[in-house]
Structures are given as structure tokens and as C-alpha cells.
């Protein structure tokens, strides 16, 4: 793990000197914050909701889903709230029409990428992608579905990996590597052909590094990783709190 990822995952809390505090504005609210925190955690602490998908508290931030993009006045580009630290005096907008529109399109792109048919999914009703789409008011997908045909890996006696539901958020990869320390999962290939795979592209059952802990299944935001024997809508992910909506 590289240093910056480590720094992200282990957030240091210590008593702050006044000069170590920055002031910023998020959606009109004047706030003070620790400059080591991210815009996302600062917003969360003040009940400002920024939608996320690849972010999961307790593991390193990834910055891949682009759902938490926010506008910062004076910055040329939109920035991911999960990885951006506050600078003194910045003005952040998390709900500008522009970012809301981009978020919608990004989630629609995700929905078009693979086979996200909720009515036949084990996580129907408990899926973060589904909740995200509904919160953003997505009623239809403007992009044609790509529907690749990807083989389901049900070789593991306890779990199922269905890449057709995968959003490549890499939460399984990070929770396995950073919390369990096994690093069974990783992403192989690149671009649109990217896929999550166990060990050196082995069937899950044959992945010798897998400890069978099941953290990946619980960390997965969608029905891509689920427990065996669940019918439609029966797969509830065990987390300390209900997933973000």
C-alpha cells in the first residue's frame, strides 16, 4: 500500500492548534475544520449529504466512481470530495445544478455498463446503486445498455460473484487487502474490459489466499457479491449502519 493511501485510511485525530484549523464554506454554511480531513467527512459531520459509491469508511479512498464530485470556487476542475482536503477559505458547492447533472449522467453510465436489472437481483431494495439512482431521480437511462455477457462464479460454497452486477468500485478489493490483509481480489484487464477477479484469475473456490471471511460480500454496494442461497431481494449487507442514501 502506498503512503498516501495509508494516510487516507488512518486519519489522525489530535487536539488542534487554532492555526491548524481552516475555515471554509460548504453549501452556504460557514464551517471550521481540520485540514487533514476530507471535504466528504467534513460535510458528513455537518449533516451535508454528498452521495458516494466507491467510498467506504474504514478503507482508503479511491476516487473512481466520481459520484462525490463537488464544485470548489476558483478550482478549474471538479474535485472528488472523498479525496480533497480543505484549503483555507474555499467555497464548496455540493448541490449545484452542474454537479447534480453530472452525477446523474455518471450513474446512468454505470447502469448502462452492465446488467443492472433490479427486479431479478438478490439485493433489490437494499442496493446502494439502486438507492443512489433513486435519490438522484433517475427514471430512465439515456445511454444504450452495453450488456456484456459475463460468467457468474458460484464455485465458492458460501458466496457468489456475479460480475454482471459489478460497478468496479473496488470496495471488495480494498477491504480484502486493507482490513483482512488477504488481497484475494483485484481488478484485471483495463477499461471497459475491467473485471474483479480472485487471485490470478482463478475460480473463487480455488483462490488459496481467500480466508472466507466474507468482508467483500458485505462491503459490496450491489448484488455483485452475495451469499449463496439468497432469492431476489433477500441479500441484506451487514454493516454498522444502513447504507447511505
Amino acid at each position: 500500500m502506498t503512503d498516501h493511501r495509508l494516510q487516507n485510511s488512518v486519519r489522525q485525530r489530535h487536539s488542534l492548534h487554532p492555526e491548524d484549523i481552516v475555515t471554509l464554506v460548504i453549501d452556504g454554511q460557514q464551517l471550521t475544520a481540520d485540514p487533514n480531513d476530507t471535504l466528504l467527512t467534513i460535510a458528513q459531520a455537518h449533516n451535508i449529504h454528498i452521495p458516494t459509491l466507491c467510498f467506504l469508511e474504514g478503507i482508503s479512498a479511491y476516487g473512481g466512481c466520481r459520484v462525490c464530485l463537488v464544485e470548489v470556487e476558483g478550482y478549474g476542475k471538479l474535485v472528488p470530495a472523498c479525496l480533497t482536503h480543505p484549503a483555507e477559505g474555499i467555497i464548496v458547492r455540493t448541490q449545484s445544478p452542474r454537479v447534480i447533472e453530472y452525477r446523474k449522467k455518471i450513474v446512468e453510465l454505470l447502469l448502462s455498463e452492465r446488467n443492472h436489472i433490479c427486479s431479478v437481483c438478490v439485493t433489490n431494495g437494499h442496493c446502494e446503486l439502486q438507492q443512489l439512482a433513486s435519490t438522484l431521480g433517475i427514471t430512465h437511462i439515456r445511454y444504450p445498455g452495453l450488456f456484456p455477457s459475463l460468467a457468474i462464479d458460484a464455485s465458492n460454497t458460501r458466496f457468489i460473484h456475479d460480475p454482471n452486477r459489478c460497478v468496479l468500485c473496488s470496495r471488495c478489493v480494498r477491504v480484502c487487502a486493507e482490513i483482512e490483509g488477504a488481497h484475494t481480489w483485484d481488478i484485471i484487464h483495463r477499461g471497459i474490459k475491467s473485471r474483479v477477479s480472485a487471485d490470478l484469475n482463478q475460480p473463487w473456490k480455488e483462490a488459496v489466499t481467500c480466508t472466507g471471511c466474507g468482508k467483500c460480500v458485505q462491503a459490496c454496494p450491489t448484488g455483485a457479491l452475495s451469499e449463496q442461497g439468497k432469492a431476489v431481494g433477500e441479500m441484506l449487507k451487514k454493516r454498522y449502519t444502513e447504507s447511505t442514501t
Binding site: 476516487g63 453510465l109 455498463e113 468496479l168 477499461g191 471497459i192 474490459k193
Partner: peptide, 20 residues
């Protein structure tokens, strides 16, 4: 499309949709 690393959604899926 073929050189996108696939980490972020707009580049991974967006370039594919543009190509389509």
C-alpha cells in the same frame, strides 16, 4: 476506449458510449 485504465466511470464507460 482500449487504453482507458477503467478506474473512473466517465472514462471507462463514457468513452465506450462515445465510440458506440
Amino acid at each position: 476506449t482500449s487504453e482507458s485504465c477503467g478506474k473512473c466511470v466517465p472514462c471507462r464507460v463514457g468513452t465506450m458510449q462515445m465510440y458506440t
